[in-house]
Design a protein around this nucleic acid. Structure first.
Length: 347
DNA sequence: AAGGCGGGGAC
DNA sequence: GTCCCAGCCTT
């Protein structure tokens, strides 16, 4: 299905189904700008009352610029991302001081203002000034990825360029502002992240994701696996110039490398608690190391070493075997373990 | 390229 | 609990 189908039907649907929102009944750049800042990463339902309060308190950019910073921040309370409020105020003052209170109309000039990035600059330029620039936000990524069946990740720079270029090609040159809002409105009301209302979608018949039943797979996001913090409590059984170590099994970090008996928990625990959990008396503890930290690709390791000077309490069947310093030095070990052994002087 | 920022709603 | 939301800024 070709692009005119998408743009035409999205625009038509928008004209008939759009929500009546206050910033859509004006061409005042100040109001459009304010709404866009408030709606960054924020749902309309949450942002709407804030918009009303800001307009009531600051009807124009001069009133906002003249306000004390605390008053602006107080009105922003509860909305989150408070840098937005500080940038909002800074931007207002900049517009008043450097532009005589008149918002710049070109995308490139808007982009220079604090708090205005590529999306917001395009939104203002198109909606307030009719400039033919595509505003690409999370909704647009989702709608385009689904309609065109695009598998490029939306959170990589290369993927972003693909969507930006496509959005620019699709843009309705006659009504860029309405078109941009049409696509976003479609994403907000119909083509939602979960349970999209495909049965009411104006462009369903041309939608690749709908045809292939792949809406739930799109858009693709590159796995930005978040860092997991793991807390390892090592029990270092030692005595007679020997230290007890074991080989790590597969399917976890440090496969095949050698370390000590390990208790993993959700958080750092007192050494006594760890020892007790093994049925050992706390009196066996002959030393506790500070926390060692180690950064892996997607994990942060926090390790603490509890020295058990009495090998009598050795857990059977843990695969632990005694090694002399010379032997231990030759074993392959995680650098964390090597560091610890070096710190204690065992190696 | 990655991380931080935030509260709320859906699931 | 997780994911996402009309993103931007800093490092």
């Amino acid at each position: 299905m070709d692009s005119p189908f998408f743009a035409t039907n999205a625009l038509k649907w928008y004209d008939e189904n759009r929500r009546d929102l206050p910033w859509r009944n004006t061409s005042d750049p100040y109001r459009i700008w304010l709404s866009e800042i408030i709606l960054q990463q924020t749902r309309v339902q949450q942002g709407l009352p804030y918009y009303q309060r800001f307009i009531a308190a600051f009807p124009d950019v001069f009133r906002l610029a003249a306000a004390p910073p605390d008053k602006v921040l107080r009105l922003w309370e509860g909305l989150g991302y408070y840098t937005r409020a500080r940038n909002l105020h800074a931007c207002a003052r900049l517009v008043v001081q450097n532009h005589q209170g008149v918002f710049p109309s070109r995308y490139e000039d808007l982009l220079r203002l604090p708090g205005i990035g590529p999306y917001t600059a395009a939104a203002i330029a198109s909606m307030a000034f009719g400039q033919a620039v595509a505003a690409v936000d999370g909704n647009v990524y989702r709608v385009l990825a689904r309609f065109f069946g695009l598998e490029q990740p939306i959170n990589s720079p290369s993927g972003k360029r693909v969507f930006q270029k496509l959005a620019h090609e699709l843009l309705d040159r006659q009504r860029p502002g309405a078109y941009n809002q049409a696509v976003m409105e479609l994403g907000a009301l119909v083509c939602t992240p979960k349970n999209p209302a495909c049965h009411t979608c104006p462009v369903r018949s041309g939608c690749r994701a709908f045809q292939l039943n792949r809406w739930h797979k799109l858009p693709v996001k590159a796995q930005t696996r978040k860092i997991r913090t793991r807390y390892l409590h090592y029990l270092v059984f030692s005595g007679g110039n020997r230290v007890y170590m074991k080989k790590r099994k597969a399917r976890d970090i440090w496969q095949g490398l050698y370390d000590f008996y390990c208790v993993e928990t959700n958080r750092l625990q007192p050494a006594e608690k760890i020892v007790k959990s093994l049925g050992l008396r706390p009196g066996y503890i002959s030393g506790v190391s500070p926390a060692y930290r180690h950064q892996l690709t997607h994990q942060k390791i926090v390790a603490r070493f509890v020295v058990i000077g009495n090998p009598a309490g050795l857990p059977a069947d843990a695969g632990l075997r005694p090694y002399t310093p010379a032997q231990a030095a030759r074993l392959p070990k995680p650098v964390l373990i090597t560091r610890y052994l070096a710190d204690t002087g065992f190696l």
